[in-house]
Amino acid sequence: MELMRIKDLPITADLAGFAAVVGVIALGAVAWVARGGLTRRWEHLVGLLGLWMVIVGQYMGLVSSPRERMMGEVGRILYVHVPSAWLTMLTFTFTCAFATFFLFSGKRHWDHLVEATAEVGVVLSILLQATGMLFAKPTWGVFWDWDPRLVSTTVMMLSFMGVLTLRGLLDDVDRRATWTSVGSILATTSMIVTYFSVRWWRSIHQMQSSPDTVADPMVFVLRWNAFAFLFLTVWFVVQRARLSARREALDAPPALPEEVPA
């Protein structure tokens, strides 16, 4: 058990895995946008796969996987809490990436994806906080405490809520897109701090688990649920981006009327 904060823990393995997942999805997103991805409803297949996987995955988590040694049945919330944490961070990573793409290219579809990922990320972070509190009460003994990990997670959630609020206040389409993107890049800082909070500071929250610290049958169920959450997240993001594009088309001022001869 770590007694002190550990700053110099090797993180190469997590970073490599994370970079691989990010790379694959980013390539997919770029290819999708380049081919005019909003025209075809391919995402329902991914969504159905995610739905099936989440049903099977939660059955495994709740019934067939072993109980945890110390936490007993309570430990099973891990299979919702940890995938929500991973997906919250992954989704916000994409908010930052799409925001950068938008600012450099000015292409409006990136803005739709910024809005979609920020909003889905906020929903995931609410799920993360809710399951975290339910997890904390029977294990640590409290729902909440002023701990670095819990505070930084809340700051992260509020930052992206703030970005969405800012977006809602701006009417001009170009300004809205630009400032949403700038805000998203800045808000991503809080996401990175949240990730490292358990290493930089002493916290009641444990450090990131790895396959070395988790028993094999649990690792499998965790990974399964992470992919289930990933596919569902992709479905929600694409749906939300589509909605964002439609809203913008609807809000666009009508073309100027033809000169009417007097």
């Binding site: 058990m1 945890e68 040694r69 891990l78 294990t139 640590w140 450090m207 610290t213 028993a215």
Partner: peptide
Amino acid sequence: LIKHDNEYQPPQEGEHPG
């Protein structure tokens, strides 16, 4: 407060979690 570490293991022989 309890500080649980980052290990998640099934119960060992004869242990009754919970």
